[in-house]
Write a protein that binds this DNA or RNA. Structure first.
Lengths: 122, 122
DNA sequence: CTTGATGTTCGACATACGTCTATGTTGACA
DNA sequence: TGTCAACATAGACGTATGTCGAACATCAAG
């Protein structure tokens, strides 16, 4: 269960330049039902204030990754933090790795670029 | 009730170049609780497949606006469409205007740019 | 004014979601 | 092996959300 396959925004290992994003910009043409289904999952994952703080915290952290022990001031209990991090993982926005006692989360690098493309203005 | 004040992404009428977006890029620093609260509202609004299709449909439509009569193929009933369009309005993503018999929706122009900035890569 | 078309609002309902406390699981270290 | 710390999972609970059909509001045209 270490590979997230929920949201294949990019073809995995397709090379750094042959980016194949999930969907065209929102303004290019009406989304199909399937495109909307996949893309909405990302937006939904970021649609909760706590998750958005967690994501921002990980994304802005030194080295692009953060340990759960670093984040205890988001206003919710530790199990709730864990629950939200899991949601972000399921949406394909974060990955996690255990190193010794601690678990480190980092942002899936392709995601930010892909989401940015969705909102890109022509 | 014609002015949406829910999500002041930009200072209203602050001029075309003095853009004052709500929040820094997600990767710049951890979001505060208030920033997360405001920004999550946008993502949440786009976090539903039907709403995402509606938004994409309006955003990509001829002239940047679309009549409700044009959108009947999203798989839900017409009252549900109306309900979702209202949600998008409340999130500050769309505006509506009645012209005669029909109601036209258009995307709030500053929103796409602001959201793009949130996800911009350095 | 009446009729028909276009949207919106209103209840009602099932489901999903966010949160908590309590309990597991995993690894480090005596 | 036993114990502690870090994190995850399970179950429960209240609230929010998406959906529908029915009723309402608004406008154009007879």
């Amino acid at each position: 269960m270490s590979n997230i396959k929920v949201l294949p925004l990019l073809e995995p290992e397709s090379g750094p330049e042959s980016v194949a994003p999930c969907c065209p910009p929102l303004t290019e043409r009406p989304f199909t039902a399937e495109e909307a289904e996949r893309t909405a999952r990302m937006f939904k994952a970021l649609g909760d204030p706590v998750r958005l703080r967690l994501f921002s915290l990980v994304a802005s952290h030194e080295g692009g990754e953060a340990c759960v022990c670093d984040i205890s001031d988001v206003g919710v209990s530790q199990p709730t933090v864990s629950h939200h991090l899991k949601k972000l993982k399921e949406a394909g926005l974060l990955t996690s790795e255990r190193r010794g006692t601690w678990v480190y989360y980092r942002v899936e690098p392709s995601v930010l670029a892909s989401m940015g493309r969705l909102l890109a203005s022509p």
